[in-house]
Amino acid sequence: MIAIDDKFCPESSHLIAETFTIPLLSQLSEIPDFLLSWKETDEGHILELNDGGKSPISIDFLAGKKAHRRQFGGGKGQPLVRAMGQLENTLPNVVDATAGMGGDSYVLASQGFEVTLIERSQAVAALLFDALQRARLSEDSEILQTLQHMRLVHSDSAQYLRQTADQVDVVYMDPMYPHKKKKAAVKKEMAMLQKMLGADTDSENLLDAALHKATYRVVVKRPKGAEPVFHPTIQPSTNISSPNTRYDIYSIKALKASGQLSE
């Protein structure tokens, strides 16, 4: 069970509770497994997710790893950005179907892509919401421009893709998988998320929904050396690799031309 501590920042707590259907701690008679609470900093209050351990997680688009990736990640030449491709006269719009902590979406938005972040977890969606709200208070025009390209939706991604009437050029997927334990920050975030969300059991369903909704391509992030996400009839058209990661690319035009993907 997840709850939000409304002792501090009650107005913001109530907004998040209502938006993401998260119970307020003050209204519970039992201790939740995961708690959203507010940390006071010089820049204001930051929403954190805690499972009772000593290392809560939060999202910050203004500093830390995400800011570093935006500034020094390699711009349009980085594999993630190249994997999204480019339409004849514009950049494709992207649905990040597994938004998670928002890092990849933020990089893509900083390069001019219109990105819809889909996150089904109540707690993670709440962290993203808080991070976006705080980032919009920035006086940095580049950050504010990046945020204009980001839209957060709290939903099951496969259901969203099958129901939305919006055109979707690219669907991007980053299925959860065990990370190598090299960096403490990655280890901490992934350990808590895997504990809260459980094993990823519906990547096949999401890939199928993505293939039938995207008009340009589907991109799936995989660990280097890992098998593609299973699909009974369809394999990636190509891929782009980096030292530790591979981006499997499913070209919709190529799949339809070969008869692997029905209209």
Rank of each mutant, 00 (worst) to 15 (best):
D5R: 11
D5Y: 11
D6Y: 15
D6F: 14
D6C: 04
K7G: 04
K7A: 00
F8K: 14
F8P: 00
C9I: 00
C9D: 02
C9Y: 09
P10E: 03
P10V: 00
P10G: 06
E11F: 08
E11H: 10
E11T: 01
S12V: 00
S12F: 10
S13G: 07
H14F: 02
L15Q: 11
L15I: 10
I16C: 06
I16E: 04
I16T: 04
A17K: 12
E18I: 01
E18Y: 11
E18N: 08
T19M: 09
T19Q: 13
T19Y: 15
T19K: 15
F20L: 01
T21Y: 13
I22M: 02
I22D: 02
I22R: 09
I22E: 00
L24E: 03
L24R: 13
L25F: 14
L25N: 07
L25I: 06
L25K: 14
Q27G: 06
L28W: 10
L28R: 14
L28H: 14
S29M: 06
S29C: 00
S29T: 09
I31R: 15
P32W: 15
P32S: 10
D33F: 05
D33I: 03
L36G: 05
S37N: 09
S37I: 06
S37H: 13
W38V: 06
K39R: 15
K39C: 06
E40Q: 15
G44W: 15
G44C: 04
